[in-house]
């Protein structure tokens, strides 16, 4: 069986196809591109700053809305329409369904992020941006996106209501975003551990261009944890 025939690829393709067919996806994506473009362009022209910083810093906040909006329909819509029963009775393993959905949503996010490559390319035209920093920044963005997508897919498997899926996903992502700020209020011995759980430290380190395997491991293990949780949720639905 070729790679293109593997169920994970076929499902990811199908997910991508569904997202491409949905007007809501385009609305969310246009809103994201307009906001991120504005964040990049305004300092460039107003303050003559040729930096990705103004685009990067608020990105986790933008992702708090963007990623749950992209992933909320993933499983919730299948449950609501009853098509999950169709999927689950095809000769496909549950983990392939989860990964197919995940990679489909991640693929769409990658397409969206490809549009934002216009910003560093624009910087190349007006200055000499640090290629290492740009690479680190995109690794950070993609890592964050991969982690939030896993959370979104998991939240979507919890319910048949897309709005509930969005709220749960947003709440978990927001907690991970806030946790860095909470670290100041916990006993000093615990603070580094609490900070390590949050996304901010890992995102900022990579965004500065410091590529540390611990940060990459954080995104990978966080994504794996929520995908495993998603699989557990699907299994538990069958045993109810």
């Amino acid at each position: 069986m070729s790679f293109r025939q593997k169920p994970i690829f076929v499902l990811a393709h199908k997910e991508l196809f569904t997202l491409f067919n949905s007007p809501a996806t385009y609305i969310v994506c246009v809103l994201f591109l307009v906001t991120s473009g504005w964040l990049f362009v305004v300092p460039l022209f107003q303050f003559n700053q040729s930096s990705l910083d103004t685009f990067l810093r608020p990105l986790p906040l933008l992702f708090l809305f963007l990623v749950p909006a992209l992933t909320m329909r993933s499983f919730a819509e299948e449950f609501k329409a009853g098509t999950f029963e169709y999927l689950a009775t095809l000769p496909i393993k549950d983990y392939e369904i989860v990964l197919g959905k995940y990679f489909g949503a991640l693929g769409w996010l990658a397409v969206l992020l490809a549009f934002t490559l216009a910003y560093p390319l624009a910087l190349l035209g007006v200055g000499r941006p640090d290629i290492g920093q740009v690479t680190g920044a995109y690794l950070a963005i993609f890592g964050l996106g991969a982690f939030f997508t896993a959370i979104g897919v998991w939240a979507s498997a919890l319910t048949r209501n897309q709005v509930v899926a969005f709220i749960v996903s947003f709440f978990v992502c927001f907690t991970l975003y806030l946790i860095d700020h909470i670290a100041g209020f916990v006993p000093s011995g615990m603070a580094p551990w609490v900070r390590a759980l949050g996304i901010t430290a890992h995102f900022e380190a990579l965004a500065r261009g410091v590529i540390d395997s611990r940060d990459l491991l954080y995104w990978a293990s966080g994504s794996a944890f929520f995908l495993a949780a998603c699989l557990a949720v699907l299994n538990s639905r069958r045993w109810r």
């Binding site: 569904t18 329409a81 029963e85 095809l90």
Partner: peptide
């Protein structure tokens, strides 16, 4: 298997539905 509720993907055309089924069935 034809489930009781006959769930179908509403956003697909008839031919596409059959094509996706063939692909998903490997």
């Amino acid at each position: 298997y034809l489930p009781e509720t006959n769930p179908l993907y509403e956003d697909l055309a008839v031919y596409e539905s059959l094509e996706w089924t063939a692909r998903l069935r490997g």
